[in-house]
Simulated scan of single mutants.
Amino acid sequence: MNEMKSLDNDAYKWMTVPETPARHWCRAFFNTDVDCDIMINNICESFNAWILDARGKPPVTIFEELRVKLMRRIAVRKEKMKGYHGNICPKPKAIIERDKEKAAMDCIATFNGGDIAEVENIEGSKNVVNLVMRTCTCRRWDLTGIPCKHAKSAIYMKREDPDDYVAACYLKKTEDLNEYL
C-alpha cells in the first residue's frame, strides 16, 4: 500500500476509504465459498445487453420477457449437457487439461506424510496444498473450485485424478440433480 501511495495518491485514498473495503477489489479478501474469482464488470454488461429489448417496457412485461428468456436458456443448456459425456462441465475440464503440463513441469510436491504438501514452483516460490480442505496458499483453488497447478502437482504425486477434486458445482451429476429440485 505504501508503494501504491507513492505511485498514485488518489488511488491510495480510494483504496483506503471505508466505502470501498478490500473485499470488493482484492482477491486476497474474496469469499471462497462461491467458487468464483471474477472481479470484472463484464457479467453486468452482458446481462444488460441480453435484456436490452425489454429494458424500456413496463416492469411486469420486463419480468415476463426475462422469465421466458431464462426458460429458453435453461432448456438449451440442459440439452447441451445431455449430449456431453464427461463427469465435469466442459470449461473446468478444459482448464484442468490445459494446465496438466504446467503442473508436471513447473512444480515439485513434497508431502508431510498426510494430505498436506509443500509445492515448490520452478521460480523458487512455495505454496502449501491441503488436499482434504481443498486449499492452496495461492488461493486460486479456493476461489474457483478448480485445482490450481500446485494442487494438481500434489494430486498427481498421490497418483490421483484432479477431476475428483473439482467443486461439486462443476459436476455433471449436479446438473442432473437440479432436474429434481
Results as ranks from 00 to 15, higher is better:
residue 56 G to S: 09
residue 155 I to N: 08
residue 154 A to C: 04
residue 56 G to M: 07
residue 137 T to V: 04
residue 4 M to L: 15
residue 70 L to C: 12
residue 116 I to H: 04
residue 148 C to E: 07
residue 110 T to W: 01
residue 19 E to Q: 15
residue 79 E to I: 00
residue 124 G to C: 03
residue 19 E to N: 12
residue 81 M to T: 13
residue 9 N to D: 13
residue 53 D to V: 15
residue 95 I to M: 04
residue 3 E to N: 08
residue 37 D to L: 06
residue 10 D to S: 10
residue 50 W to T: 12
residue 73 R to L: 12
residue 129 V to G: 07
residue 35 D to G: 01
residue 70 L to I: 06
residue 11 A to F: 03
residue 69 K to V: 01
residue 56 G to Y: 06
residue 73 R to P: 00
residue 87 N to Q: 10
residue 74 I to D: 10
residue 108 I to W: 12
residue 81 M to R: 10
residue 37 D to C: 04
residue 9 N to V: 11
residue 100 K to W: 01
residue 134 R to Y: 00
residue 5 K to F: 07
residue 56 G to C: 05
residue 142 D to A: 09
residue 137 T to Y: 08
residue 44 C to M: 12
residue 138 C to R: 07
residue 81 M to H: 07
residue 177 L to R: 14
residue 98 R to G: 03
residue 35 D to A: 13
residue 111 F to D: 06
residue 75 A to L: 11
residue 165 Y to P: 07
residue 154 A to F: 00
residue 112 N to L: 02
residue 22 A to N: 09
residue 27 R to D: 06
residue 94 A to H: 09
residue 40 I to W: 10
residue 66 L to G: 03
residue 66 L to T: 06
residue 119 V to G: 06
residue 130 N to V: 01
residue 133 M to G: 14
residue 39 M to W: 03
residue 70 L to E: 07
residue 163 D to Y: 14
residue 111 F to E: 09
residue 143 L to T: 01
residue 117 A to K: 01
residue 166 V to S: 06
residue 48 N to S: 15
residue 70 L to G: 05
residue 131 L to G: 09
residue 78 K to D: 15
residue 133 M to I: 03
residue 22 A to H: 12
residue 36 C to F: 02
residue 62 I to D: 02
residue 17 V to L: 10
residue 42 N to W: 00
residue 29 F to D: 15
residue 46 S to Y: 00
residue 99 D to V: 03
residue 139 R to H: 14
residue 116 I to W: 00
residue 34 V to M: 07
residue 160 E to R: 15
residue 122 I to Q: 05
residue 53 D to H: 13
residue 175 E to I: 12
residue 67 R to S: 13
residue 89 C to S: 14
residue 76 V to D: 14
residue 34 V to Q: 08
residue 91 K to W: 00
residue 124 G to E: 03
residue 22 A to V: 10
residue 59 P to S: 00
residue 94 A to F: 03
residue 130 N to A: 01
residue 45 E to L: 03
residue 52 L to V: 09
residue 61 T to V: 13
residue 101 E to M: 09
residue 105 M to F: 08
residue 86 G to V: 05
residue 38 I to D: 14
residue 150 H to P: 04
residue 67 R to I: 02
residue 37 D to W: 03
residue 173 K to Y: 14
residue 20 T to L: 11
residue 153 S to V: 00
residue 166 V to Q: 00
residue 73 R to T: 08
residue 168 A to S: 12
residue 59 P to D: 04
residue 67 R to A: 12
residue 62 I to K: 05
residue 106 D to N: 15
residue 152 K to I: 14
residue 32 T to Q: 08
residue 126 K to I: 04
residue 102 K to H: 06
residue 38 I to S: 13
residue 136 C to W: 05
residue 174 T to F: 08
residue 130 N to H: 10
residue 106 D to F: 10
